[in-house]
């Protein structure tokens, strides 16, 4: 490309007054953008600060629980002490049972969550992108979504027996719908102007999807995944309460039958911890994706 270099000088001679003013404005705007990041950085607190603040309430709860359970207001068969719950945990893990329960439950959740969110993403993408697919199958998928997922349990047991398959499939169903709903909805509402950019500069439908549509829905997909994960744990406990002989849900049921309230508390606390841990994994994924795509 041949570029004339004296054009600016010509222009400057003709328009001296405007030049001066706009040059000043230009300086100003450059300075403004350069200043923006540091101002935000000063407001950021270190990570451990958030961690400490977040730990205040749980610690206070445990202290309160300890005081309440040792005060004698509530009998021990209704409220175990934190220590006895800890001991129940140590006892179960010494016999190798606890780790087994935790491992199998986590495996079921992760497997079902994975299968459910992948298929939710795929079906949601097809229905969100294609008007025909949407007209044809969206009402049917909507009807399946309207079935309370636990209603599938008897059918699943009848078809698949009480093996792993039926439990994982139930969790898959639970994880599928939140992802499907958020993805198909978000794709339909991607900024129309940006879609046109993709059409004008893209090469194919696939290209449009990769350049514009998928990046645009990343934040929504992540919140869909969050919901799906919570659903997965919900359906895990449901499945294990109803038909299983191992896992945290089974531990709950068994402890209820045996009146082992310390183990009941243990199972609930473990579910909270595991749920929070897996959710934190999604949080890591979210931070990575949002840094890249927003």
């Amino acid at each position: 490309m041949a570029i004339r270099s004296n054009s600016e000088a010509d222009v400057a001679a003709n328009e001296a007054a405007t030049v001066l003013q706009s040059a000043l404005e230009f300086e100003h705007s450059v300075e403004g953008t350069a200043l923006a990041p540091p101002i935000r950085r000063t407001q950021k607190r270190p990570r451990w600060f958030a961690f400490l603040v977040g730990a205040v309430v749980p610690v206070a709860l445990i202290v309160f629980w300890q005081l309440l359970s040792t005060s004698g207001i509530i009998p021990a068969y209704r409220l175990p002490t934190p220590i006895s719950v800890w001991e129940a945990g140590v006892d179960l893990s010494a016999r190798g049972l606890l780790l087994q329960d935790v491992a199998i439950s986590t495996q079921r959740v992760l497997l079902g969550f994975f299968l459910g969110s992948i298929s939710g993403l795929a079906v949601g993408a097809v229905i969100g992108l294609s008007r025909w697919a949407s007209l044809l199958v969206a009402p049917t998928v909507g009807a399946f979504r309207a079935v309370p997922s636990l209603a599938w349990v008897p059918l699943l047991i009848l078809y698949l027996g009480i093996h792993e398959d039926s439990k994982v499939l139930l969790i898959t169903i639970g994880a599928f719908f939140p992802v499907y709903t958020t993805v198909s909805g978000a794709l339909r509402h991607v900024d129309h102007q940006l879609v046109e950019v993709g059409r004008a500069f893209g090469r194919s439908r696939m290209n449009l999807l990769l350049i514009v549509q998928l990046p645009a829905i990343v934040p929504t997909v992540v919140s869909g995944l969050r919901l799906a994960l919570a659903q997965s744990w919900l359906f895990l406990v449901a499945a294990e309460l109803i038909f299983s002989s191992i896992g945290l849900g089974f531990l709950l049921k068994e402890s209820q039958d045996n009146g082992r309230i310390d183990r009941l508390f243990l199972a609930i606390i473990l579910l909270a911890v595991l749920g929070k841990l897996t959710d934190a994994l999604i949080g890591v994924l979210e931070r990575f994706l949002l840094r890249r795509w927003s």
Partner: peptide
Amino acid sequence: DALTRLTMQDLLLDIHA
């Protein structure tokens, strides 16, 4: 702004040439 506008007009003509 006025200056950048004139510069860009010349740029467009250069590229067109």
